[in-house]
Design a protein around this nucleic acid. Structure first.
Lengths: 238, 238
DNA sequence: GCTACTTGTGGTCAAGTCAACCTGAAGGGT
DNA sequence: ACCCTTCAGGTTGACTTGACCACAAGTAGC
């Protein structure tokens, strides 16, 4: 049975990588993701998600991490499986059937980026994807954005975009960029502080043109949240 | 690359099938799932989740549905992808690497069941799994139960266990069985009615040894819920 | 036929959550 | 000295939730 599969199926791992950058037009912080130009058929010349065929000795998450590193030169600060896409008709023009196990990741832009193949990689705001992408990657991107937005509302993953110390206003701007809407500063502060996912460092920022904000760091994760049972979507070996 | 994969990887689709039955000891409604005894290596003789290698011309969800039908003779009333398991070391004794895309499903016990291979299939309460199961299926079952419990609290999937008409008490007993704790009848009624996922049929049950309950049916799904964006975890083609 | 029992149905009440809004604090800029 | 900006904290009303209470409406037993 395995032999029959072999001739016509390819198992690939791809990753939707999210980062935050100011938008060149408006200057507002927005969600960006890297795309890779395909250099072979099918969909040669189209933009696609970073990824590739799964190596034999590689765990799925490791392959997803490699996709991040190879396309961006960055280490993912959060990595989570999104979905397995495997409909028979999802790559109509391809000679073989491609099944993609897709992850999504968060990276910090400011970190030291290793050299990447800048020629075939480019970053785009999630609302300005140069479509249509290869395969069903447009659908995948939309789904990944939905998941990120949903998860950010009940899980403290937004910290992954920020450095070790940050003000609540910086954290709020991350949330606003992800959710694409303004949040009330006062209510945001209350919510974040009440859920106990950040702790005060005692320091304050200096050199701001206004009242200096307190600086916080993300608190060590307690094993359980008040609202949901799952701390991470990924299953954990006991 | 595809050829290299082929010799050592197998892509399988399995399904965690949930059903409700009274517990033989206590009589209380509890969660059950069917297991299949493996008749070949690796893990020959161990119990495992229903499933098998993915056929070439078969969509992933279709393969998952087949796993339900072949093991139970029932049609799944709800089907959703759970996770893709593919760690290199998850089948230590297997000659090849097995990557499993796992779904979970809900079935109604009372429906006409087609003939199945009863010899090698048996049902067990989720708390009394005859472990250890083959591969990492114990982990998968635990994860699937967590997901079902989480999802039932914010999505009206519990109706899938029930026939077309049901009383709110029957629906409550479904929730109690899934969540494994008692729920206040009055508060449960208020919550369910306020979320508008059921509608009154106007009829009442007869022949009960107490006040006859109103009968409800599940309301046609509106396209959007108040609390969450996602109606279904699965991505939807636009 | 009367009473006890069981479960359905509806309501109250206090605690908690959340969005909208208001006010003062504390810096730099001019 | 004054203005502007953002930080920080509090108030209010609408809504949700869990605990609890009371009555409704059938059957079962005597």
């Amino acid at each position: 049975m395995a032999e029959t599969q072999a001739q016509h199926m390819v198992l690939a791992v791809s990753t939707v990588v999210f980062s935050l950058r100011p938008h060149p037009d408006t200057g507002e912080l927005t969600l960006w993701l890297p795309l890779v130009r395909r250099i072979r058929r099918p969909f040669k010349g189209h933009w696609a998600l970073p990824g590739g065929p799964l190596e034999n000795s590689q765990d799925l998450a490791a392959a997803a991490k490699d996709a991040v590193r190879l396309s961006t030169g960055l280490q993912p600060r959060h990595l989570e499986q999104l979905y397995a896409f495997g409909d028979v008709d999802r790559s109509p023009h391809a000679p073989e059937r491609v099944i993609s196990i897709v992850y999504w990741a968060l990276v910090r832009q400011d970190e030291d980026a290793q050299a990447v193949d800048a020629e075939n990689v480019d970053w785009y705001p999630v609302e300005e994807i140069p479509g249509p992408l290869a395969f069903d990657h447009d659908l995948i991107v939309r789904y990944a954005v939905d998941r990120l937005r949903a998860k950010v509302t009940y899980s403290p993953i937004a910290h992954a975009f920020l450095p070790g110390e940050f003000s609540l206003a910086e954290l709020r701007r991350v949330y606003e960029a992800v959710l694409n809407r303004a949040l009330d500063p006062s209510n945001f502060r209350r919510q974040i502080l009440s859920q106990g996912t950040v702790e005060d460092t005692g320091r304050r920022a200096t050199g701001t043109a206004h009242r200096p904000p307190r600086m916080y760091r993300s608190a060590p994760q307690s094993s359980r949240y008040a609202l949901t049972i799952e701390e991470n979507n990924d299953p954990v070996r006991a």
